[in-house]
Design a protein around this nucleic acid. Structure first.
Lengths: 233, 233
DNA sequence: GCCCGATATCTGCCATCACAGATTCTTGAC
DNA sequence: GTCAAGAATCTGTGATGGCAGATATCGGGC
């Protein structure tokens, strides 16, 4: 089972096995977050502590803790009726999530711009190449992972981010639904809006970068609108 | 008799008190959140699962879960070195928190305005009276609780809030530090900026409400600046 | 054949215990 | 008196087991 291996790797990723083995719950949360952001969980489905525990090769306890964090981040709803479900999307929720992204992400990009050095810019370009490749190959999961990497490679340039945390929360809620949407329209309809952002970064143009990010967000919204906003899963 | 199911349903509906005992971890999180927002925890201090468990009369498990959520909300840092601490404030963190508040809260107030009905407005006025009273009496904790109630009585008018969640996260991080600041300058220097907001709500003036909220936030910032931003605890 | 009720299973929830690292306190040597 | 080594304590962490409620499955009655 590759997921267990990924979880183990994630658990040990923080420190190179010297003195600090990262806590299990941290690795579990990282793995689950990745699944949410890349859309590997479907809206409306339910998760179980025991199931995930067995799947990831740990006990219920760290799983429970990770799910607790995910609940705080809005990625899952823990209904008192003995069910943990990933929330379904509604038009209102979708619009509010999008509004929050519009508010926060351009600001985060602008503030992070001065901290983006040459190596990071190179990594951005590499990630963008991967995104285009994923679009060509119809690799939906690779596209979503790359898209996440791209945006947060920008935002995380600003150290000590609080904005980043808030934005990550939004993405955790977006992921499952976006996967459904992307799956419906296919990768052929995806356009890569990131080159404008890259050139703005290269030019040190903060306003241009903010505009590019905003355009990228709105572009995704238009995609949804064109597909089927009414068919919310 | 076809009424058995109806009877069951009626019985369930008739006694909602016994039907849903809220999970312990939820209550613990609520209590701890209240303490953070009203500044009953001091920055830099450390919490322990066992201590809180004994204090609240529950086991470690629900406390851990609540602390896990609080960590996700940035209210506590769970350092791997066997310590759970409430973060200290730094000028950068403070500015970023404030910037996030400026971005989110006016927007939240504007969007919530159409949902504020007469009863809620009356409750707002009552809370505002309590705030003034708390200021006069030097009741710092009452002031902070009232201030929180006032703002979220506005924001929470909008149902299913995602914005509200994000804002609450910011307040959870602000609370401990604000208590220190307020404690330093005393309640005498506090001014109640909420009346402008109340009248804007009464007039249905969204822009005016947004401006009032923004002014309220900036006013708090000025208070900090006037006291001692350099003496960050 | 259809529906209701009892049993079996599954679920989140919580308490308890054990473990290992970190911290604090004690103690003994110089 | 100083200070370091060891013991006692405190810490987060994780696994286990069991409880109660919810769901699913199956059996029996009409």
């Amino acid at each position: 089972m590759p997921s267990t291996r990924q979880a183990e790797r994630a658990a040990r990723a923080a420190r190179p096995a010297r003195a600090e083995p990262a806590p299990l719950h941290s690795g579990v949360h990282a793995e689950l977050s990745r699944r949410f952001i890349t859309g590997q969980v479907t809206p409306g489905s339910s998760l179980s502590t025991r199931g995930l525990a067995e799947e990831l090769g740990v006990s219920q306890t760290p799983v429970r803790e990770a799910l607790s964090r995910l609940a705080a981040e809005g990625a899952v709803q823990i209904r008192s009726k003995r069910k943990i479900i990933v929330p379904t999307m509604t038009p209102e929720r979708f619009r509010e999530l999008l509004r929050c992204r519009e508010l926060l992400e351009p600001e985060a990009a602008m503030r992070a711009l001065p901290y983006i050095d040459a190596p990071r810019l190179r990594r951005l370009k590499r990630v963008d190449d991967g995104i285009e490749s994923a679009i060509r190959n119809g690799d939906l999961q690779g596209y979503m992972q790359g898209n996440f990497d791209f945006h947060f490679l920008i935002y995380d340039a600003l150290p000590r981010g609080i904005l980043n945390r808030l934005i990550e929360i939004l993405w955790l809620q977006f992921g499952p639904y976006m996967r459904v949407v992307y799956g419906r329209v296919g990768t052929a309809n995806l356009v890569d809006q990131h080159e404008v952002a890259i050139s703005a970064i290269g030019a040190g143009d903060a306003d241009g970068l903010a505009r590019a990010i905003l355009a990228d967000i709105r572009d995704g919204m238009d995609l949804i609108g064109k597909s089927a906003l009414c068919m919310l899963a």
